[in-house]
Design a protein around this nucleic acid. Sequence first.
DNA 1: GGGAGATGATTAACATGTTAAGTGAATTCC
DNA 2: GGAATTCACTTAACATGTTAATCATCTCCC
Lengths: 177, 177
Amino acid sequence: MARKKLDETRQGQGDDASSRRTPMREFSRSLPMSLLRAREAVMRQFRPSLRNHGLTEQQWRILRALTAVDEIEVTELARVAFLLGPSLSRILRDLEARALIERKAAENDGRRAVVSISAKGLKLIEAVAPTSEAIYAEITRRYGARKLAELHEMLGALEASLAGMGSADDAEVETDE
Amino acid sequence: MARKKLDETRQGQGDDASSRRTPMREFSRSLPMSLLRAREAVMRQFRPSLRNHGLTEQQWRILRALTAVDEIEVTELARVAFLLGPSLSRILRDLEARALIERKAAENDGRRAVVSISAKGLKLIEAVAPTSEAIYAEITRRYGARKLAELHEMLGALEASLAGMGSADDAEVETDE
DNA sequence: GGGAGATGATTAACATGTTAAGTGAATTCC
DNA sequence: GGAATTCACTTAACATGTTAATCATCTCCC
């Protein structure tokens, strides 16, 4: 796969001092890229099945999260399903329109909304779950259960490592508030 | 009506004879979720810096990939930068409008387009690279270089494990294999 | 009480992910 | 040599990611 030269040499325009460029890592060794590719390799397995049931990955995440609780506030659901507020808002609107979930206002706080899965939503989950688990089992079989557990642990440790790392923002725009 | 229990859907037991539902993994142990969270933890570090330079993550990926070659065809660029064709088309259109890249038709094939980074694009890369590398160095320091290498290897192995796994699509619609 | 500020949720605006369809140029096959 | 097919993008359409702004409560504090 093309171990091409790392030099510059664009067309003749401006042979400036760009020969002193900060050398960067090889692309394939980028951590975000590795994580992205691994995740895509996994999701590629699940997407067709979800699609056959009319669900996107995120919609599935939400319904899955809702099966684990009786009801849950939107903010907490966003945290659990790892979705940003705006995305969640849109998806909940759609899921509610499809009657897969139910929504009501919190009793003691008019701002908060409480969400729960509907009977129809539960049926859908039950329809998808077997295939989903079968795929997961096959992945586990291929990769190895022990290795999978180890990977989980290392990913968790990575998250933890970066937890308190304040964005080392360059060109920091003066926060003169 | 949302009448569900499942408050105790921890893995382990889960033999709910009455519901007979396929017990599913705890949410946090989902592999796609772990990968997503780890990746987000990493990208959260880079995004502010990129943003300060007017670049999105994907635009940065493309420019980064272009610095490694003299020129490259669009399809190959999509493979290297791990972007789908439609996304790449849009981004290239924007980057070309901003004069960060240049595009021309292949000489021997009118279908193919050849892309290269411009002098302006290179300047931008050089402006971002130091901060980007500093962040990466800090991540490596926190997580550990050895552990990072091991993680890379495990992610690559995961990809490889799933390489030939044909979508175990339920409700399979007659494929030709 | 009441106003300033905080908070939960949504909306807005733009960029990308994802799948399907379209377009124009090469290749195949008869 | 030309129709059919394949190929390399590109557009289209819809869903989500991401940041900022908005809106309606709620809380705090005087």
